[in-house]
Amino acid sequence: MSDQPLSRRAWIRALLITLAIGVHGIYAAPVPHIVTKEQLKNPVSRDEVATWADRLTAIGYTIDTDTLGQRVVEVSGQIGGLHRSLKLPFIPWMRLTGTGQGWALFANPDTHPGRLSIRIRREGGAMEDLYLQLDPEHDWWRSRLAYRRLRGCWSAGGFSKRPRSIYRRFSQWIADRIFAVAPDVVEVQVRTLRTHTTLPGEPPDDRVEKRHVITIQRDSSRAVGVKP
């Protein structure tokens, strides 16, 4: 570093950069997301809380699963609320620019992942698979459905009781596309097949849970049956 005087421009630049780093620092703070009671009901979260309760108990901080779950909801709510209020003044700018921080990437791997299934029924026929994720025999529109932006519309939310709004819109959209190109199809069904990834040493679990089943008929061209 030199002893030469720094220009006014250098000082202003450093000030602006400090401001930007400060604002983004608030956004980047690795605070836990707000955990709701509903989220704690899913098997991955339940398992998570139980394991952490065991770990904490093992190191001398005795706590049972329910109490820890309740504590997680309270503390994450408080911290999340504070974080949100710190971010509040900058939200319009961040929204306009689409910038921000928040990198909880694969924070909690999903041992009960959902597999997208699209089925159709032709006039007088039975249900048949049209698309089943990672099934080479049923790979209609595979490239489209696997495309990252579209995947965001149907994946996740598998634990919620009812399908997310975007999942319903996606189902309607896919049904409309199928009806448009296949005149003999009278019914489209979109569902998520939830599987269980077990680890070595655990008994394999081949059960498949059908969730978020949305059935759309051509005549009504709207969802006629939504099962959680």
Binding site: T51, W52, R55, A107, T111, P113, R115
Partner: peptide
């Protein structure tokens, strides 16, 4: 922020296996 047990030794360091089996 990787708080999931699968990222840790007590979760068997199994996160990558679990993620690669996520459809």
């Amino acid at each position: 922020q990787k708080y999931g047990q699968h990222w840790w030794p007590w979760g068997g360091n199994s996160a990558l296996y679990v993620i690669l089996n996520d459809w």
